[in-house]
Amino acid sequence: MKKPIPIKDRSDLRAYRQAALLGAPPIAYLLVFFALPILYLFVAGLKTPDPTAFIGADWTFANYTDILSDGYYLGVIVRTLGSGLGIVLIALIIGYAAAYKMESLKPQTRTWFLLLFLFPLMVSNVVRAYGWMAILGRTGVLNTSLRAVGYDGPPLRILFSMEAVVIGLMTILLPYMVISVLNALNTIDRRYREAAASLGASPWRTFWHITLPLSAPGVLTGTLLVFLLTLSAYITVSLLGGPRFKLLVSLVFDAVQTFQWAKASVLSFILLALALGVSVILILALRPAGAGGRSK
């Protein structure tokens, strides 16, 4: 049910008409080439699998119940959540500290550091994952350097493991956290902190009660971005984790490779549900702090 739009006067009416004319092409484009295909994929997961067609004839929930009652898939879901949240936590600690330091720098220096974090975001993730392969591989930079400083044990085998995926994804996504937190820190009025300090609060107390709560919106943005991007980083996961390390997104890819459309759809929407669920929890957890009015 659409509520009638209150129209104040004729200029409002003209504005709505102009907006509708201008907005129609992009809105139509996103409905047809973004919303509709996703809706179609959802429907495909609710139909009986049909190897000869993309979409079966009969409605069913069996695709969902099959996967959600299978221990293997549940294990992958837990691993996906665990590695995602682990990456978010590490990125939050490192990224917050880096942003906090950047905020205290002179504007000129801060801009240079900001560019250093912005630039890698523009480089394709496959290149950045390749960089980590070159560093962590058996004859990679890390092992060569260790050998050069006198280590003569067996080469470290970090590549093709969960650790490699966590290191790679965390560093690939770290700039999002740094930039989000820095944006929030920049908007905090310095006088709040000066007031706290002049009233005798220790730097730690000032940070805990003033800076951290006021920067909550930036923490929320950074955390959401990093978590959501860990969920869909198939290329990074497959290059650094190797063929045997599977996250939910790898299973989506495998299902597509074997033309199991219904299964691919179900796995995709489980992934979306995880994304949505964690986002809602994060928003609820970090919103109240953002108001900054809590007594303690």
């Binding site: 996103l30 994929l41 979409i55 959501l228 969920l231 979306l272 994304a275």
Partner: peptide, 20 residues
């Protein structure tokens, strides 16, 4: 709506488009 593709998992968009 216009910013939605930014956070939507890109691999699922790719799969949706392939089917579509």
């Amino acid at each position: 709506l216009f910013l939605a593709p930014l956070v939507f998992p890109t691999i699922i968009l790719g799969l949706s488009l392939l089917l579509f």
